[in-house]
Design a protein around this nucleic acid. Structure first.
Lengths: 152, 152
DNA sequence: GCGCTTTCATTGCAGATGCAACGAGATCCT
DNA sequence: AGGATCTCGTTGCATCTGCAATGAAAGCGC
């Protein structure tokens, strides 16, 4: 008679370390944290704020909506990041006269100054990462490219 | 005279979409969200809870400390996830008689039952992801492997 | 054996986050 | 024109999160 089999037998093997969503989450957390420390320690900004700033540095004058669509943030995240950045004097907000629902966000001179210092550091970080990964870097990027296109 | 140069000139080009930490964050968010919907809709659990459950399914009886070390969570995350899982009747907690600071977490029959249903779904999800990415999947994994070893 | 330090798990608190609702303004439709 | 609908940005609220502090137990040194 073989009833009372230990229930362990019913569970399939599953290796969390080989589970791609898990691996991605860990990888993202590690690289982001490294960077977040830099941003915060040196400039007192968070990652959502960083994303908004980068987009403004690149695109000049934009609305919350523009940023939302382009930097993978929800509009309320953009809105709150922008609020903090305004309070710090790094960006300013005007009203768009052509469509008064829209805001026009742009860097202040102070914000521009900070980005002039921060962007080279971010570039250096990217270069270090590429150097550290060597050959594997190109593979990682190719894989990410496929994944990002696929899940878009 | 060339003072009053527009300040735009001072900012280096920077492409957020080519910035690896950003790409990783977006990729992780997308894949996790896909999965989180499954977990939540079907079983009412969150990702931290899922991680704890997987570890318990794999390792039998373990402490918070064990889990913390192995599934990239802080101990308070584990502790709170375990609390919710206990309240749902999916895991149980005993005291370790050999070291009474330690807890012994394990799946209840109900939890075991749920995992017997959930693990195959997770495997299927992984298989789908591999299929969708095709060639690029191996590259992604090779790149992640290097990154995870490098930043460990 | 007895204080001192370390380890383990939990939790209070403050700040962050996500959802849904809101108000203001634009657009559409007849 | 003007009511219904849609878009944009913000915010109230409940929940979640991360940090640091706590309490309980073990280990360590003398």
């Amino acid at each position: 008679m073989d009833d009372e089999v230990p229930p362990e037998f019913e569970l399939p093997e599953f290796d969390l370390y080989g589970f791609t969503p898990y691996r991605l989450a860990v990888a993202a957390k590690r690289t982001s944290e490294e960077l977040a420390r830099l941003y915060r320690a040196r400039f007192g900004i968070t990652i959502p704020e960083w994303r908004v700033l980068v987009h403004l540095a690149h695109s000049g004058k934009v609305s919350v909506r523009d940023i939302e669509a382009r930097v993978a943030m929800e509009k309320y995240e953009v809105s709150r990041a922008a609020k903090r950045l305004r309070e710090s004097g790094l960006i300013e907000r005007k009203e768009n006269p052509e469509d008064r629902r829209l805001v026009v966000l742009s860097l202040t001179p102070k914000g521009r100054e900070m980005m002039a210092e921060l962007l080279p550091l971010a570039k250096a970080h990217q270069a270090r990462l590429e150097a550290r990964l060597g050959e594997a870097f190109a593979e990682l990027e190719a894989g990410l490219e496929a994944l990002l296109n696929e899940t878009k």
